[in-house]
């Protein structure tokens, strides 16, 4: 680490050029709540740090028609202070609010949370459930990637080493939509999800579920989008039977490991419990969003 180079470019082109030109280990720095910690604990020894917080596209929150776009480096706290975004995507914000602690959220970003590529990242399942799409840029141009396709394994993404996530697009909300995210940790904060479950659903005028997406955290090598769990809700009134089926489908989708944070048996069971509880909250929120 004796020759660490720090750069803070102001344009996307400069950022991707710096990354492309680096032969050694490069790391993109937004809030730094993962990168700096990993450096301190000698897990990584980067040769180049590219701080992206000075690039406007990464730090803005804007409406595009009915949809929301926010920069990948926007801090959790900045999102928390955005009243309308909180009202529109309470489930995404459930996840954001669970990242680290108040101090950490002052720095940490959703983009960083995603690109750290932990299967337990708290903002990722509700972003997947929301149908968020990441806008990615590299030396060879831009591409859009659904959030669920970004993480390919623990600590690994589908991004090229010179690509960065610029922003996220969250689709326009139909009326009577609601989302929610719950995670299980032994502690109330400063903890990593043992299991996480995000549910996003839309109801019709009769209260029947017309669309749903369900995503799980910490139960597989990557965050999971579970179509079977969503299918358990679609076409139902999200009643007891549907919730039972949802829980069963969520548990069935799990492919967890035994580790210091939880057992296989425990994670499978609690994934169903949390999916069910998250769906109940999403349902209540959808009912209020006429």
């Amino acid at each position: 680490m004796q020759n660490l180079r720090y750069e803070a470019p102001e344009t996307l082109a400069d950022a991707t050029a710096l990354l492309a030109a680096e032969d050694g280990m490069a790391r993109v720095l937004a809030g730094g709540t993962d990168v700096i910690v990993q450096m301190h604990s000698d897990l990584i020894e980067p040769d180049l740090i590219v701080d992206v917080k000075n690039i406007p596209e990464l730090t803005e929150i804007a409406k595009e028609g009915g949809a929301y776009r926010f920069g990948a480096a926007v801090s959790g706290k900045t999102l928390m202070l955005h009243e309308d975004f909180n009202k529109t995507w309470p489930g995404v914000m459930d996840g954001v609010r669970l990242i680290g602690s108040l101090q950490i959220r002052g720095r940490a970003s959703v983009g960083g949370n995603l690109c750290n590529a932990s299967p337990a990242a708290d903002s990722v399942p509700p972003m997947i459930a929301a149908g968020a799409v990441a806008s990615v840029i590299g030396p060879n141009g831009a591409r859009d990637i659904p959030v669920e396709d970004i993480v390919t394994g623990p600590g690994q993404t589908c991004l090229d080493k010179s690509e960065i996530v610029v922003s996220f697009l969250l689709p326009e909300r139909p009326p009577r939509s609601g989302d929610a995210y719950l995670r299980f940790t032994p502690r109330t904060e400063m903890d990593i999800a043992v299991v996480g479950a995000g549910v996003n659903l839309t109801l019709d005028d009769d209260g029947a579920c017309t669309a749903a997406r369900v995503a799980l955290a910490a139960v597989a090598p990557t965050p999971l989008l579970v179509a079977e769990a969503a299918d358990a809700l679609i076409g139902t009134k999200v009643d007891e039977t549907a919730l039972e089926a949802l829980a069963a489908a969520a548990s069935a989708a799990c492919n967890p490991i035994d580790d210091k944070r939880g057992t296989v048996e425990y994670r499978i069971k609690v994934a169903g419990v949390l999916a069910r509880r998250a769906a109940a909250i999403a349902l209540e929120r959808a009912g209020k969003n006429q």
């Binding site: 602690s101 502690r187 904060e189 400063m190 903890d191 990593i192 210091k260």
Partner: peptide, 23 residues
């Protein structure tokens, strides 16, 4: 928590879970 090699698996406050104030 120890691995089967006898090395400690949780040598930090993230996974050695002392209570936080809100607990």
């Amino acid at each position: 928590i120890y691995s089967d090699k006898g090395t400690m698996e949780n040598p930090g406050f993230l996974d050695y879970r002392v209570p936080v104030a809100s607990d």
